[in-house]
Amino acid sequence: AAQEQWNKDAFAGHSVDDVVKALKGSAAADNADVTLVAPDIAENGAVVPVGVVSKLPNTTQIAILVPKNPNALSALFDIPEGSLPDIATRIKMGKTSDIYALVKADGKYYTAHKNVKVTLGGCGG
């Protein structure tokens, strides 16, 4: 079974900065080598598909964050040697928000972000 400890501090954070700090990193900025794939409009706020790919060498960690959720951090992945920095999962979003991909490479943190709209639906052409 899984061995690691669940990082309580990181999951208590409300912002990207909070989470980076809890992960013992310093400020993270957007980087074009981090790709975040998420829909423009969520089909279902309870099931939003999110994929992250990093082209940064020595990527060891990938996290998915939604700052407008009650707690920002959704998921944190450790990428061991031999695994590709290419993961996907599905998350919940309470309302329209930016989603952040947070990537640790060579010990430093980088991000990519995208606005995902959560709408009431209806109507159509």
């Binding site: 899984a2 690691e4 999951f11 994929g51 939604v66 992945f77 695994s83 590709l84 996907a88 998350i91």
Partner: peptide, 19 residues
């Protein structure tokens, strides 16, 4: 080949994909 920590905002009946 992968380890992860999740919070409660991962969707019900979680999906995971990796390489």
């Amino acid at each position: 080949v992968l380890s992860a920590q999740w919070g409660p905002s991962v969707s019900r009946d979680p999906f995971l994909s990796f390489k």
